[in-house]
Design a protein around this nucleic acid. Structure first.
Lengths: 202, 202
DNA sequence: GTCTATAGTCAGATAGAC
DNA sequence: GTCTATCTGACTATAGAC
């Protein structure tokens, strides 16, 4: 695709246009669900007409896949950075938990779509691949802790991952960014519960 | 509504017919999601024609509400029984965790609908009321443990409830009843992690 | 009670003007 | 690139025969 120079009208074009559509799609899919959201809803949100979206995307499914793959790629990078300079003990795991919770509140719409419309997206290769990359970072970090003797060895690492990630992802359903509990407090609390729960006995 | 005597044909009638429709609806809603599921899908599953469903239900929304309310009522009763004869320490909480996980695998379809189609059902009074009843049983049980000194007092009971319930409900997404890990093993593992995570320091 | 038939609506996607 | 206009199909719900 050839990029287009930005016009002086202030109306976005080219790559910026596509990004606007992706932002609009994320918002509409999160609010209404993939099935109920219509391409007309997305077009309205992006101040276009529905037919125009098909210049950028082949189908409604292609839109949701691109929305989610872009998000998952950012999370893969963020997790990689988080564990890169982790110290010993349970430090790496604590960084992952903090990163997961921050990524959750910073990308509410994407996480909501992934959870609610898992039926539709679970078969998309681009999405499954990146979920596996993320799982690998967590499993490696947990296994290091087990090998070092700081994490209990009587429970399978994958079961720990699933339990911890389940607790974290559920936060999206009740957390209110303008509520009394800050995300930093949530990080402190969930880290306390979950890391204590898998810590090796002293 | 007047009940109908069972006919000798073996074809269910009256109340049994309605229950067949509810079972069919639960299956279809869980598989396709509320929005994508059609009343024709449900009718097919129940061996009827779509128009006939409207003798029993006013709308598609009424079907999903009745499906979920019936399930939540069963869970409210089950939790009540679980804590009724709990001993001290963390025994009550452990019973709730076990009951939640058993209820999850025994009602996969209902739990799936509640999670995936939360958008549609979150406003239905019959559903919200029962969710609050369930939350109350959990909060009371946790608070008793805090008061007795067996559960840590530095974390809000509701935050503990949300973290624990999140970890439990996520199990629906990966648990396979015919897989290598039994539900009893999942109960053992999650109880170990979550109860150790909120236990008061010795 | 269950059927046939259909009203009324709205969806995703496309063709071609500009 | 974005528009207008529209095709084709599927949906929920209803009316009335049986």
């Amino acid at each position: 695709m050839s990029t287009t120079r930005r016009r002086s009208t202030g109306s976005p074009t080219g790559v910026a246009r596509k990004e606007l559509i992706l932002r609009s799609a994320a918002k509409v899919f999160a609010e209404k669900g993939f099935s109920s959201a219509t391409v007309r809803d997305i077009a309205d949100e992006a101040d276009m007409l529905s037919g125009s979206l098909y210049y950028y995307f082949d189908s409604k499914e292609a839109m949701v896949e691109e929305v989610l793959v872009e998000y998952l790629d950012r999370m893969v990078r963020a997790y990689g950075i988080a564990v890169a300079d982790a110290k010993g003990s349970t430090d790496g795991l604590e960084r992952l938990i903090a990163q997961a919770l921050r990524g959750l509140v910073d990308n509410r719409e994407h996480v909501t779509i992934l959870q609610n419309d898992w039926h539709y997206v679970r078969l998309m290769k681009g999405i499954v691949d990146r979920q596996h990359q993320i799982e690998k970072v967590w499993l490696d970090t947990i296994q290091k802790g087990i090998d070092a003797g700081v994490i209990r060895s009587d429970i399978d690492a994958r079961m720990m991952y699933r339990t911890i990630m389940g607790a974290i992802q559920a936060v999206i359903r009740w957390f209110n960014p303008r509520g009394r509990v800050s995300i930093d407090q949530v990080i402190t609390i969930q880290t306390a519960i979950l890391v204590d729960g898998i810590r090796a006995a002293a």
